[in-house]
Design a protein around this nucleic acid. Structure first.
Lengths: 239, 239
DNA sequence: TGTACATCAGTGAACGCGCGTTCACTGATGTAC
DNA sequence: TGTACATCAGTGAACGCGCGTTCACTGATGTAC
């Protein structure tokens, strides 16, 4: 689990107990996510498993929606940490290797934490809207790393990708805004293909995690995924 | 909505009323899917909207899970119909055009019916397992059409795709089984890329329907999707 | 065509269950002087 | 260091709510003779 607000030392015992309880709430919440799903996530059930009376959790969490937000942020952070850890073992100049490492890390984490993955990348939870100011930062960690890969490759002059098919002229504005917000220099066709690779990567992972391939169709899903990653590496012109 | 058991004529009034009620249940169930989500789908609420007492729906549907199954089958069929309708307007020899038509039809349907799309392609519903004998048929209509496209192109000898990267040797068995079950002749590397295009297509649609792109990032998502389709056409070597 | 019986749609009450959230409270912990 | 007060974690009862499912029933529709 990702660390919460850090520094448990130099805190009063009461404050340390509070941090521990917050961590327990998130941990138990995640197990409930796995067994009941996000829509059925219940504060009362979390309180029960915590050994508290139901009203007590309101000392820690203002509402059921806030618990969901905690789980969303925690999930994004754990996924982001997994990706960063994987990237730490790959040379920054090995662009294809970095893309593959990101893909593997996302898949491995998703298969290990399918319920949290579903919360982040599956169906929206009815009636719940994640507060952008708290989830956008953690939620963009992976895509930021992906963009870094092709931006690095572009700057190194090693992107070998056709600029055909050309993105529609109407897209220029959107792509320019993305370029500005991410402070990158990659050209339109590379950004557009990058978005495709991003969506395709998560499409592959979702199909596997959500069981779209059908039970028993694939005896070696990891081999298929590796092949798909290799094709996607080519889609953004890396090698 | 897809038709249920057909032929309402030559039936007794009571039987016709029953068919109508079944259709109403599915229709109302879908509106509840949209507002409450699959996990919160409730037989009592459907009964209320139908103007019946809650126990009455048990004359039509054995349980809540069976209602979910009806919605799954109905959704797959509607999506399958949408794709078939789109394909009807494209020459069988226009392989790229057929792939693009399928992609557009999937996206359009998903955006029009996000809740049903989420039921079919989003997070699994906790505690519910779709009965394979009822959902596999309707659930494979779209992928069958996709496979048809590249199989046709392959037979016509117009697939221009590198066989690199090569799928891992361990995949040969899985790919051979797929080839046998679908009764096709396309080679390993084409089948493997086809699966990627399938997953990527739904990945793009899911990102858009589930809001992963973030509110306001894209003013013209349809243009981006068109570009992605064009790239995916190339991924399976069509033109 | 008429009658006797079987089938079926829909009723209403009941079962036992879990939920989110509020509130007044007790007792322990922390802090200012 | 000791005391008075403020803060805070946790309690237990209560609110009003909705859920899936079963069951004995009534009355209308369908069918066999």
């Amino acid at each position: 689990m990702a660390t919460m607000t850090g520094m448990s030392d130099a805190l009063t015992p009461r404050a340390r107990a509070r941090e521990q309880t917050m961590r327990d709430i998130v941990r138990i919440g995640r197990t409930h996510l796995a067994t009941e799903g996000a829509a059925a996530l219940s504060l009362r059930a979390v309180a029960r498993d915590l050994g508290l009376v139901s009203s007590a959790v309101y000392r820690y969490v203002a509402s059921r929606d806030e618990l969901l937000t905690l789980l969303v942020v925690d999930g994004y952070d754990e996924l982001g940490d997994a990706v960063d850890t994987a990237l730490a073992g790959v040379e920054r100049s090995d662009h294809a290797g970095r893309l593959v490492a990101i893909g593997r890390a996302v898949r491995a984490w998703a298969l290990a934490e399918p319920a949290t993955y579903a919360l982040l990348f599956g169906s929206p939870v009815p009636g719940y809207v994640a507060p952008a100011e708290r989830t956008t930062g953690p939620g963009t960690r992976v895509v930021t790393r992906l963009v870094e890969v092709w931006e690095d490759a572009w700057l190194a002059g090693v992107v070998a990708v056709d600029d055909r098919p050309t993105p529609a002229p109407g897209l220029a504005e959107d792509l320019a805004r993305i370029r500005r917000e991410l402070a990158i220099t990659a050209p339109d066709h590379l950004i557009a293909r990058g978005v495709l690779v991003w969506a395709a990567l998560f499409g592959c992972v979702s199909f596997e995690v959500f069981g779209q391939y059908g039970a028993g169709t694939l005896s070696r899903p990891e081999d298929l995924f590796e092949h798909h990653l290799a094709v996607l590496v080519g889609t953004v012109g890396l090698r």
